[in-house]
Design a binder for these strands. Sequence first.
DNA 1: TTAATTCCTAGTTAATCAATCGGAATTGTA
DNA 2: TACAATTCCGATTGATTAACTAGGAATTAA
Lengths: 137, 137
Amino acid sequence: MKLSTKGRYGLRAMVELARHYGTGITPLNEVAEKQEISSAYLEQLMSSLRKSGLVHSVRGAQGGYRLTRPPNRITVGEVLRSLEGPLVPVECVDETGVGCARMEDCCTVVVWERLRDAINDVLDSMTLQDLMDSGDK
Amino acid sequence: MKLSTKGRYGLRAMVELARHYGTGITPLNEVAEKQEISSAYLEQLMSSLRKSGLVHSVRGAQGGYRLTRPPNRITVGEVLRSLEGPLVPVECVDETGVGCARMEDCCTVVVWERLRDAINDVLDSMTLQDLMDSGDK
DNA sequence: TTAATTCCTAGTTAATCAATCGGAATTGTA
DNA sequence: TACAATTCCGATTGATTAACTAGGAATTAA
């Protein structure tokens, strides 16, 4: 039931970018340094975030990243789904997936559905702006 | 963010035992067969459940397991915590643990706390009885 | 032209998962 | 008493995943 470092690091990186929102683009190195994340690893995470349209990138010297939307319009859920895939506690309640043979008469599926919904509700209710306002670093 | 087979199999096994509640003890083999779980593997899970006091075991011929409390007084949360450990999305918000160096000025810890609470609220609000009533198998 | 940067793929190491195996201990029953 | 059914326990294994690291290609401002 744990998130991987992808989600944890990536979310911190996104808050960092949120702090720079409106000031042009920020090179990955600066983000990595501020948040103490290996920049080579962070690169991979930024690639996912870019592909799901949460950040825009500029290549070449003076290049870097910026959010594609203001921080109050990017939810934590979006960021984590981009990095971790569907936020489901078990495979079988992933709506984009295949379900499970047992599904029809499984006594536990109701648990996983409720859990999935609770998780997504919490994460979709918080934005990068909320995190900027609360934390320091 | 996925549960392991321990939690998934173990919960199904516990619902199976819930169905036999009041009828004496049930051998592990019967539970394993009904829920299509390797009985050798299920043994390990029962060991955890016994150690946390959720089931009582009887050794020897005609032995087996039974719940230590009626199904409406065992929550899904208890079962899963017994098998999976603390139900936290990230290490640092495990109250029984050590936290994290960054903790004080971490911008994301509030997310993990909210998520942790939501997860535990959902799982502690459902009992084995609830699952017996809903599902079939 | 060069230095700074993103982009992309592959490889590595360690940990974790999901069992399996073998046998010891216990206990009801023939 | 002997036996069969069961729980109990620790070790081992094989596969998968996690968390990076490495190397180089492509791009672009200065």
